[in-house]
Design a protein around this nucleic acid. Structure first.
Lengths: 186, 186
DNA sequence: GACCAGAATGTCACTATTGTCACATTTAAA
DNA sequence: TTTAAATGTGACAATAGTGACATTCTGGTC
């Protein structure tokens, strides 16, 4: 639960501290006071909502996680590692899940910006993962990149269910890098 | 009777540890000192009362404790529903996951106190779920109740891996209720 | 364009609160 | 038991809140 002080907001908005305090007092900006003398604190999410409401620019440092990450879902560790290498070379943090349960936990914990998903994992239906994820409002921003050795028709179906991109195995590092960079910069 | 350390409160309020100690010393926040050197402890309920008194936001993780829940992992919906009925009759909230991915997400989102886990789910290795969960510090408080039609040896193995109780199918509602009540009251 | 009222924002000095740092000590984990 | 992580403390630095008042902005009018 990250919060900002009135001073931090003042410098973000390039405005006087006095003014920020007035915004909070007027109810224009939602905040709360510490018990001491009533120093103000504002939840980051409330501040972002405030910025959006007034069409003010949102500083990069506030946008989502400081370091958007990638979740790699693949039961074959060597493959996963190779994807991770490509991701790292492109400058992105990543996590590996070798099973559905792990994937769910890591997704929920890290809220990555992109998830690469192997469709043909034994004992795990990639399609239902896509479906379930797409049903959840919380992950509507998540980009799903399907990776599979299956035929075009299977990949098509994945896209229909809500995947954002597909790569057929074997894929070139270049293609993967392109896709990751595209989604990670959105 | 759950308590919080000054450090935990500091991070909840996004405030310096020093400040929290001052609040306690000033009597603004009710707390007590351990015999050692006087490390501070605050009852969760006192902390919540403090937050409310100052119109400060209450972290989700504290609200959660108010209504501990149960996560039911079973691919057969009828079975899951029947477990849910037993849970509800005992007065507990519960969530159902019919796959590993779903289970991971629900576990992470709701942080239930108890998870019932069907060992013999097609395409999902219950053992690895237990192992993975036990490796994570975050879920060390989670009680895992293994439910399975498998033989005693399999259940034994689950217990060795870190499950807290096991029930052999078919189980009696009474036994399940006993187990749930025991763990939910801890 | 000049003028004006009213509102919003900035400035300043002063005080209270909060943060920082180094170090001793306790707790919790391995 | 040994080790690493948290916590408490005191002194001091940095930051935030307040009130009164100056300054700038805004929109409307002539």
């Amino acid at each position: 639960m990250k919060t900002l002080t009135s001073g931090e907001i003042a410098s973000y908005c390039d405005v006087n501290l006095r003014t920020v305090i007035r915004w909070i007092e007027n109810g224009k900006l939602k905040g709360f006071k510490l018990p001491g003398r009533g120093n103000n604190r504002v939840l980051v999410e409330d501040f972002i909502e405030f910025l959006e409401r007034h069409d003010m620019p949102i500083p990069d440092s506030l946008k989502g996680d400081a370091t958007p990450s990638i979740l790699i879902v693949d039961d074959e560790m060597p493959v996963a590692k190779s994807i991770q290498r490509v991701a790292r070379r492109a400058g992105f943090d990543s996590y590996i899940a070798t099973g559905g349960f792990q994937a769910g936990i890591l997704l929920s914990q890290h809220e990555p910006r992109v998830m690469t998903l192997d469709l043909s994992m034994p004992g795990m239906d990639g399609y239902s993962v896509i479906e379930f994820t797409r049903e959840q409002n919380k992950y509507k921003e998540l980009k799903i990149v399907v990776i599979s050795a299956l035929d075009d028709i299977s990949l098509e179906r994945a896209l229909e269910l809500g995947a954002d991109a597909s790569l057929q195995k074997p894929f070139s590092n270049h293609d993967l890098t392109m896709v990751l960079e595209q989604f990670m910069s959105m």
